[in-house]
Nucleic acid binder design. Structure first.
Lengths: 208, 208
DNA sequence: TTTTCTCTATACTCACCGGTAACAACCTGT
DNA sequence: ACAGGTTGTTACCGGTGAGTATAGAGAAAA
C-alpha cells in the first residue's frame, strides 16, 4: 500500500487519463507556437523540445502535423459553436440573443484555441480537413446570421442585410484574436463588453 | 524608321520603364499567390512559371522572397495610409471624417495589396521588415484612433474608449479582405457603404 | 570592332523539416 | 517467467524549395 492508501500500480483508467493529458500537453504547446509563429513556421522539433521529449514521441499521439493543427481549430470552433448554439436557443428577442452571442464569442477569441481559428486560413489545411473546417465555420456563421435575421424580423434590430451585418460582427470579433494581449490593460471582459456596446449602439452620437 | 515613326532602338527611359513593368508583374503575380495560398505555401517556381520565366529571373528584380512580400504589404499599407491621411485632413466633424476613412479603407481591402496586409501576420517577416511593417500599421492605427477621439471630443461620436472603438472598426474592415469574393453578389461599394452604416448607427433598432 | 552591360536559362547546392525504422526500457496481464 | 503492449530514444531518409554559379544571347556603349 502507498502512503495515500493507493497501490503503486496504475489502473487502466489511470493510464488512459495520462495518455490523454499528454495528448493535451502536445496540443496546448503546439497551439501557442502556431499562434505565435504560424503553422508553417512552427516545427515539431521545437514543440517537442518545449515538452522535453523528442519528435517521434509526438507521433505516438498524433499521426501528422496537420492533425495537430486540425484538432486545435476543431476545439476552437467547437467552443464558438457552443456559445452560438446556447445563445440561439436562449429565449428573448433577437437583439438580446445576439448580444449574448457576441459577448461569449469575444471571450473565446482571447483564448488559445479560439485565437487559432481566426489565425488559421483555410488554405493551411489539406483538402479533407479544409472541407470540415469550412463546414464548421459555415454552421457558426449560419447561426450568427440567423440570430441577426431573427432580430431584424422581430423589430429588435435595425432592418438591413443580415449577411453583411454578420460579416461585420464576425470581423470585429475575430480580429480580437489578432490584437488581444494578455499582458495588456484590457481584460477579456472589458473587450467583450465594450465591443458589444459599440456594435449594438453604433459609433455615432444620437443624443439630441 | 519604324512604321509608327519611332526607331527600333529603345531609349534608356524605355528600358527603365520596361524593367519597372516587369518588377510590377512579379509583384502582382506573387501577391495573388500569397493571398490564395499564404506566403510559406507559395514557392517562387510557381510564380515564375505563371510569368513564363524561371526563378533566377525573379532574382534579377528582387533579392529575396521576403523582399517581394514586404513590397506587397508596403504598397497595401501605403494605400491605407493615404486614405487615412486624406480623411484625417478633410474638414468636418470627427464622425464625417471617420465615415470617409472607413469607406475608403474598406475599398482598399478588396484589392490585392490591401488584402495582403490583412492576411500577413507580422511573424511572417524577418526582424527588420517586421519592425517597419509594425511601425506603418501603428501610424495608421494612430490616425484612426485620433479621428475617433476627435469625434468623441466634438460630440459627433458617442463617448467611449477610442482604442477599443478603433480596434472594433479595424477588425470589421480588415476582415473584408478575408471574406470578400470578387465573383460574389456584393460589390466593394455595397460592402463599404453597408459596413459604414452598420458601424456608425449600430445593429440595435432605435425607432420608438 | 570590341567590350561591356542586361537579361535569361540550365543546372546545381544546401539547409531544413516532416516523417520513419529500429530498438530499448518498462509495465501489465497471463 | 514470459509475451505483448506502451512509451520513449537515436539515427536516419527523402522531398522540397530558397537561393546561386555559370554561361550565353543580344543590345548598347566605346
Amino acid at each position: 500500500m502507498n502512503a495515500d492508501g493507493s497501490t503503486p500500480w496504475r489502473s487502466a483508467e489511470d493510464r488512459d487519463a495520462e495518455r490523454q493529458s499528454k495528448r493535451e500537453a502536445v496540443l496546448t504547446t503546439a497551439v501557442r507556437f502556431f499562434n505565435a509563429r504560424g503553422f508553417h513556421a512552427t516545427n515539431l522539433d521545437d514543440v517537442a523540445r518545449r515538452l522535453k521529449v523528442t519528435k517521434p514521441t509526438i507521433y505516438h499521439y498524433f499521426s501528422s502535423k496537420e492533425e495537430i493543427l486540425f484538432e486545435c481549430v476543431r476545439r476552437g470552433l467547437a467552443a464558438i459553436r457552443d456559445v452560438a448554439e446556447t445563445a440561439q436557443a436562449a429565449g428573448g428577442r433577437g437583439a438580446d440573443r445576439l448580444e449574448a452571442l457576441m459577448r461569449e464569442y469575444a471571450l473565446v477569441m482571447t483564448r488559445d484555441f479560439g485565437m487559432c481559428v481566426s489565425r488559421t486560413p483555410d488554405a493551411q489545411l489539406g483538402p479533407e480537413s479544409r472541407r470540415k473546417f469550412r463546414a464548421l465555420k459555415r454552421d457558426i456563421h449560419a447561426i450568427l446570421q440567423g440570430v441577426i435575421a431573427d432580430g431584424m424580423a422581430d423589430g429588435s434590430l435595425r432592418p438591413g442585410n443580415p449577411l453583411l451585418a454578420a460579416n461585420t460582427v464576425a470581423g470585429a470579433l475575430n480580429w480580437v484574436a489578432i490584437w488581444y494581449d494578455p499582458k495588456g490593460r484590457m481584460s477579456p471582459e472589458d473587450i467583450a463588453d465594450g465591443m458589444v456596446a459599440t456594435l449594438m449602439s453604433g459609433l455615432k452620437d444620437t443624443t439630441p
